[in-house]
Amino acid sequence: MSENGAAPSGRREGSGSRLTLKDFANHIKSSWCPGCGDFGVLAALKQALVKLGIAPHQAAVISGIGCGSKIVDYMRVNGFMTLHGRPLAVATGVKLANPDLHVIVVNGDGDAYGIGGNHFLHAARRNPDITHIVENNQIYALTKGQYSPTSDRGFKTSTSPDGAAESPVNPLLVALAAGATFIARSFAGEPKHLAEMIAAGIRHRGYALIDVLQPCVTFNKVNTYEWYAERIYRVDEDEGYDPADFARAWQTAGQWGDRIPVGIIYQRDDVPPYEEHVPALKAGAVVHRPFDALDEERFAALKREFM
């Protein structure tokens, strides 16, 4: 597979560069609230796939449970909306069974950093070639307004009436500590930038985290479009910023509050994706391996060890 997703075989040939956003459109009416930041994620994801020439049948978008996870229902693509917290695990299975597919995970902050925290940690260190887009709105919106793992201290909701007492998860630092090879952040209110980050994540060979600041217009009246817009700055505005510099990335990833960094925070290209360590994939995707690869003779040889 080439990095831009061009098809190496007949099976993977899609509309390629002739793709448009329309190829990813379906007839389903979204149930997202008017003005929801998830619309930005949907638009950016489609745009990134178009830009990379990845056709709907060449990608697999795996989501969890939450408002944003419904994204797979709102676009024409191979989609699998799984369980709360589990899309990374399902996606890992998809990728290891058929590495020809471009596997993209989309889930929310509760899904990714809360209930699915263990999978997040292990995906980061495992480094499968999966792009992980987290719609981080700092709230549980599908269940209608409870605080999330990324809610700031003091954030008042129906389950934190006196204000959240826990420190928020800093997903960038966690990912960095866990060994992630690509860590980026973007803002759903700037979908063009987000599309660039998603495309860079898909191009990256290995696990790519894109933490998306995604305003929940209904339940989060603190972290709004304006709140984010006032605080974000692009790390690449500093020409000296080198995403390969771990120490600088650590310092940058730690920033939250008055100034919030967006862009590619960290990236290293010298770690082969997990799939390359899997012996069974040396001969290609196992989904294409015919059953008769195991014949009577080989079966007899297998039995010989028990004699």
Binding site: G35, F39, G40, K144, G145, Q146, A188, H193, V217, F219
Partner: peptide, 30 residues
């Protein structure tokens, strides 16, 4: 930004509006 659509256009306005009703006694949350 060509990807800013009507939803993202109105998003900041919706953020300022009351969107949470009373406590939802049927399903929980607001």
């Amino acid at each position: 930004d060509p990807l800013v659509d009507e939803q993202l256009f109105v998003g900041p306005i919706v953020s300022r509006l009351p969107t949470e009703g009373l406590y939802d006694q049927t399903l929980g949350g607001l």
